[in-house]
Each structure stands twice: as C-alpha cells, then as structure tokens.
C-alpha cells in the first residue's frame, strides 16, 4: 500500500524517503506530521512531513537513525512497503506575514525547518535561516535553505564548518547587531529549543518551538504526548506540535523523553534476558 518510491542518504545516519500516500499528499500543510508503522510488529512513530507532492501523490520524510524503528525504516529499499502511514496530523504552522523571522533547525530538525522557512518566505517575510549540527558531515539541505533565506548561517559544534558553536550564538549576534526580529521559530533537540527560548525571553520576541514528545496514537486518545505549557497540560499530537517556547516546561519534556530508555536499549541489542523479564 504505502510503497517507498525513492530513497537517498543525506548525511551519515540521515535518510530521505518518498512514499506513495495520495490522501496525505493532497491534504498536507506545513508543520504537520505523520505516524509511521514500519512493519507488522512495529511501533507507531511520528515523523514530520519534510515535503509533499500533490501531483505525484507522494510525501517526503527525512529521518535520523536513532533506534529500532528508524533503523528498520532505513533498511527498507525502493519498492518495499511500509505497514501504515497515518496523517496529516497535528496543527499546521500558522504561516502569516509578520515581518522578520528567524528559522532555526538543529540536527535532524534541519529537515523540518526547511519547509517552514520556505512557507514563511512565500508569504513575504524576511527569513533568516540558522542551521546547526555536531559536525560538517551532518549538515544537509544547505543549498535549499540558502536559496530560500534572505540571510543564512550554519553552525557546527566542532567548528568543522560554518561558525563554531551553537545556533544561539548566531542568534545572540543578531540581537547584538540590533536586528529587528518579529518571530523566532525553532526545531531540534530539546536543549536547543530551550536555549533559543531563553535567549529570546528577555527581548520578548515571540518564539515558536516544535516539540517532539513520545506518541502512540497521535489522535488525542492516549495522553502519552502530554506536555506542560504555561502550567497547563496539553496533548502534543493534537494541540501541537508547535507551542510558545516561553511557556514550555522543557525539563519535563526532556525527562518524559527518557521514559523508555531501558526498553529502547534492550530493543536495539535484542537482549534475551530482558525479553524473559518482560514477558
């Protein structure tokens, strides 16, 4: 049903696949995601819609191999089928003309920030792009971002490419240069989104973050994806995934992302002793 029609590697451990999924391709909007079940015994994992083509009826996903499900997905070849794809899910990004927007993507978040940057640009905003990764070989979609953004910066933690350091350092430089900024959009690892939100808080610049809580159904039925925002509990899958970064409880999010560490490691090693214990 959901067959893979193209596949390529963007960076070590980061893959791009296109899947036949007509109804999702027709309906997708920027900022939305899908649930993927790789095989019959697979887990339901959320992946952002990196792009979609309503003419060819395909969707594009970019994912990082971090564990069992993403590793198994990476093993599939063109022509292979995926058990299930559900979507488009979550609230779309509110794309409006607000003036100047800084779009920040870290790690695999680079994949996710590109369609957002493009949509903001098409709406007539001035878009400043910042993408960051650990090292040069993990930077991808650079040309696409460069062509889209009015200003564009790359950072690497180890300084092998672009500016050495974190994405927030570029952001702070923009602040120091008194660049007027109306909105900051950040997607990537939790510490990065937390740091961006802290950087913009004193300046009261509206900051939208795209959260990645653990999900199961992603239809609002289980509450696995609970996040605290402004002291209230929300379901990330239906109320999000985007929230006001100044109100998000990042510490809780980080802690909840660790809930299944032990099981994830076990699954990766497929250790038999654990198996007996769990049965």
């Amino acid at each position: 049903m959901y067959s893979i029609c193209s596949k390529k590697s963007l960076a070590p451990g980061i893959n791009e696949i296109k899947i036949n999924a007509p109804e999702i391709a027709q309906k997708a909007k920027t900022g939305q995601f899908v649930i993927v079940i790789v095989d019959e015994k697979g887990e339901r994992i959320p992946l952002t819609l990196a792009d979609w083509n309503p003419v060819k009826n395909t969707i594009k996903l970019i994912f990082q191999e971090v564990g069992h499900s993403t590793n198994t997905l990476a093993e599939l070849k063109v022509g292979d089928s995926i058990q299930a794809v559900l979507g488009p899910l979550g609230k779309p990004t509110e794309i409006k003309n607000v003036g100047t927007i800084v779009c920040i993507g870290g790690g695999v978040g680079i994949a996710e920030v590109y369609p957002v940057s493009r949509a903001f640009k098409n709406e007539g905003n001035e878009v400043i792009g910042i993408i960051g990764a650990r090292s040069k070989n993990l930077i991808f979609l650079e040309k696409e971002m460069k062509d889209t953004c009015d200003q564009f910066y790359v950072t690497t933690d180890d300084g092998t490419y672009g500016q050495k350091g974190l994405v927030t350092e570029v952001l702070n430089k923009l602040f120091q240069a008194n660049k007027h900024i109306d909105l900051v959009y950040a997607i990537g690892p939790v510490p990065m989104m937390a740091a961006v939100s802290e950087a913009t808080r004193p300046l009261k610049i509206k900051t939208v973050v795209n959260l990645n809580p653990i999900m199961v159904d992603a239809t609002g039925m289980c509450g696995a994806c609970r996040v605290t925002v402004g002291g209230k509990t929300y379901f990330g899958c239906v109320d999000g995934p985007e929230f006001d970064g100044h109100l998000v409880d990042f510490k809780e999010l980080k802690s909840r992302l660790n809930l299944f560490k032990e099981q994830e490691e076990c699954l990766n090693k497929r250790c038999p002793s654990k198996r007996a214990k769990n049965e």
Binding site: V216, L267, R275, N278
Partner: peptide, 24 residues
C-alpha cells in the same frame, strides 16, 4: 488507562521485544 491498554492490547507491549512498542 487508554495509553496503558493501547500499548498492551493494540501494540502488544506484553510481547515486547518481539513487538517493538514498550511499556515501562
């Protein structure tokens, strides 16, 4: 209850790791 039961019944977490969905 829904999350716990969905993990167990629908996703078969009681057969983890044969089935990939965990419950902790």
């Amino acid at each position: 209850a829904n999350e716990f039961l969905t993990r167990i019944n629908l996703m078969k977490a009681y057969k983890f790791p044969e089935y990939a969905t965990p419950v902790n």
